Computed example of a mutant assay.
Amino acid sequence: MNEIQAVKTAKIEEVKKNSKKGFTLVELVVVIAILAVLAAIAIPVVASTIKSSQISSAQSNAQTIETAIKEAKAATAAGDDSIFVNSTNGHKASKNDLTVADVLGAKKITSAAAQKYTIDGTDYNCVYDATDEKVYFAAADKKSTIGKDSNDISSHSVIALTTTAQDGKISVVTTDLKNLKVTQQAGD
């Protein structure tokens, strides 16, 4: 009798094993539906977060570059060569022959200016707005910028701080710092 009972138990165990080989079609469809809902919620949130971080990064880089340019102008006015000296080309603040590349190199922020941001399909590159004496990342048409309340600077005196080669590499221009002049506005 024990043998019969053992055989029955073994058969029951075998049936239990064979009956749970995989997932049913309904179970798979439910899991896929749940994943689709989660993806529909997560993708816009992630995209918004990426855009926000790019804007913050561009604003921070622009502020850093602007501060470096203002420091270099002050050093040039004071004839102070303690920071802004380029041993390769002999440019220095006291000679008033510093270039934008010299300034960014001295402050080790060349990569900040050479950064290109693509937001909502528009490319933004580093520019100096001589009218406002500010640095922005602006679109090619200068009608949209990152970090400026009224985005259109197309009517301003704008100097590109970077150039893009045919191979897509971005480099800092060698514009003389003295060319980044203050422009007098009406009422000044």
Score class of each variant (00 low, 15 high):
55 I>P: 05
157 S>G: 03
13 E>L: 05
144 S>K: 10
158 V>C: 02
184 Q>P: 01
175 T>D: 07
126 C>G: 13
161 L>N: 07
73 K>E: 10
129 D>N: 13
92 K>Q: 11
77 A>V: 11
29 V>Q: 14
159 I>E: 05
141 D>G: 03
78 A>R: 04
89 N>S: 10
92 K>R: 11
115 Q>G: 00
145 T>K: 06
162 T>E: 01
159 I>Q: 07
149 D>M: 02
42 A>L: 13
119 I>W: 00
16 K>S: 08
12 I>H: 15
103 V>F: 01
119 I>T: 08
183 T>Q: 12
167 D>F: 00
30 V>H: 12
137 F>E: 10
6 A>R: 09
71 E>G: 09
168 G>F: 01
85 V>P: 02
95 K>A: 15
81 D>I: 13
177 L>W: 11
54 Q>M: 13
147 G>R: 08
160 A>C: 11
42 A>I: 13
13 E>Y: 05
23 F>E: 13
13 E>G: 13
14 E>V: 00
173 V>E: 08
147 G>A: 12
75 A>I: 03
182 V>D: 03
155 S>F: 06
172 V>K: 01
126 C>N: 12
82 S>D: 05
98 L>Y: 01
144 S>T: 15
73 K>N: 09
127 V>R: 01
130 A>R: 15
139 A>H: 00
25 L>H: 11
66 E>V: 08
73 K>R: 10
52 S>C: 06
75 A>Q: 04
51 K>F: 08
84 F>P: 12
35 L>Q: 08
60 S>A: 12
26 V>A: 12
173 V>G: 10
185 Q>M: 12
93 A>L: 06
49 T>S: 15
158 V>R: 10
149 D>Y: 03
174 T>C: 09
113 A>M: 03
179 N>Y: 02
118 T>H: 01
120 D>H: 04
22 G>C: 05
168 G>P: 04
122 T>C: 10
34 I>R: 12
131 T>P: 01
62 A>I: 09
65 I>R: 02
84 F>L: 05
47 A>P: 06
30 V>Q: 14
31 V>F: 12
175 T>G: 09
108 K>V: 06
72 A>F: 03
144 S>Y: 01
34 I>A: 15
31 V>C: 10
86 N>L: 08
47 A>S: 13
90 G>S: 08
8 K>H: 08
47 A>N: 15
38 L>F: 06
79 G>I: 03
13 E>M: 05
